[in-house]
C-alpha cells in the first residue's frame, strides 16, 4: 500500500518527528511503499544540516537523510521553509524543497496519509 506521512513539528522539541520515523520504519519493514514524506509548519526544521545534537543522542536530520537515500521522496514546503530561514544551502542530502502541490499529489496518490504533529 502507498503511504504518505506529514510532519508538522520541529525535531527534539516534540515527539512527532520520532513517532513519524518509527512509523515509517515499521511501514517499510512490512513492505509498504512510502509515497512521500512532507515537512510543514515547524517540521521544516527537521532536515537542516546545521543541527549538532550531543554524540549520545539520535541525529534527527541524518536519520531523515538516510531514509531519503533509499529513494523515498522527502519534501520540505518552500513557503514554510522560507518563512523560517530554511533554504537549500542548509538542507541535508536526499531532501528537497518544493511547493504545496507536492503535498496535494501525495494526498491524492497515497492510499493513506498519516500526520504527526502537536
Amino acid at each position: 500500500m502507498k503511504l504518505a506521512v506529514c510532519i508538522y513539528e520541529g525535531p527534539y522539541n516534540h515527539e512527532a518527528s520520532d513517532s513519524a520515523y518509527h512509523f515509517i520504519k515499521a511501514a517499510i519493514d512490512k513492505g509498504h511503499e512510502i509515497r512521500g514524506i512532507f515537512f510543514y509548519h515547524d517540521g521544516v526544521y527537521n532536515v537542516t544540516k546545521l543541527m549538532e545534537p550531543p554524540q549520545d543522542d539520535r541525529h534527527i536530520a541524518n536519520r531523515w537523510s538516510e531514509l531519503g537515500a533509499t529513494g523515498i521522496d522527502i519534501v520540505v514546503c518552500i513557503a514554510a521553509a522560507k518563512r523560517r530561514g530554511i533554504v537549500d544551502d542548509v538542507l541535508v542530502d536526499n531532501v528537497r524543497i518544493s511547493g504545496l502541490g507536492q503535498l496535494t499529489m501525495m494526498a491524492i496518490e497515497a492510499d493513506r496519509m498519516v500526520t504527526f504533529g502537536d
Binding site: 504545496l100 496535494t104 494526498a107
Partner: peptide, 14 residues
C-alpha cells in the same frame, strides 16, 4: 498555514 494548503489544493482535481 493550513489555509495556504487549502488554497493550493483547490487548484487541483480533488
Amino acid at each position: 498555514e493550513g489555509l495556504e494548503v487549502k488554497l493550493i489544493m483547490a487548484a487541483y482535481d480533488a
